[in-house]
């Protein structure tokens, strides 16, 4: 058991953007609030705190999740990546450049979440068509309505670096009419 069980606090260790961070937190603290309030990583945004908007999307052990519905305690021993880790050595990630080029944001509040979902999408080669991108990105709401530009940015990068995928078995076909 990795946690204390009487004080309402949790201790442990989580790797955030490649760096080991000690946890000693109120057990009620979510991963989102840990990042923002305790680690000062405010790039990850809180848009609903109920898993209904995607603004808080981060990668947990390489997979995109909504950090508002994960307890920080659940991340003990796990790997978290946030928007702050996308640029490497001062160079923007191709998606970040494409978002700027295509104006894939307006107010910019949903952008970190959109980027983290998009990065995972490309890693899984699930960007073979605009429709596939739209379905896969639908967990990231944008109230400014930058959607067409976001899709264009993702498709642009996918085409450029050959990570579009083939729309084959991995392509999303769900039961929606």
């Amino acid at each position: 058991m990795a946690t204390s069980s009487t004080t309402g606090r949790t201790t442990g260790e989580v790797r955030v953007n490649g760096e080991a961070r000690r946890l000693d937190l109120d057990s009620r603290v979510t991963l989102l609030d840990m990042l923002r309030d305790h680690l000062g990583l405010t790039g990850t945004k809180k848009g609903c705190d109920q898993g209904a908007c995607g603004a808080c999307t981060v990668h947990l052990d390489g997979r995109p999740v909504v950090s508002c519905l994960v307890l920080a305690a659940q991340c003990d021993g796990r790997e978290v990546r946030t928007v702050e880790s996308l640029a490497r050595d001062g160079r923007l990630h191709p998606l970040q450049e494409a978002f700027i080029r295509h104006d894939g944001f307006q107010c910019g509040f949903c952008t970190p979440g959109q980027l983290m979902s998009a990065a995972a999408l490309l890693a899984q080669r699930r960007a073979s068509s605009a429709d596939e991108v739209r379905e896969a990105m639908s967990g990231n709401l944008c109230r400014c309505g930058a959607y067409p530009n976001i899709v264009a940015a993702i498709r642009d990068v996918a085409e450029q670096n050959g990570t579009a995928g083939d729309g084959g078995p991995g392509a999303a076909r769900n039961g929606a009419a």
Partner: peptide
């Protein structure tokens, strides 16, 4: 391109 674009895609724009 937006002159605040870099800040917004890196999570650096302060809301």
């Amino acid at each position: 391109d937006r002159i605040d674009g870099h800040l917004k895609v890196t999570g650096g724009a302060p809301y």
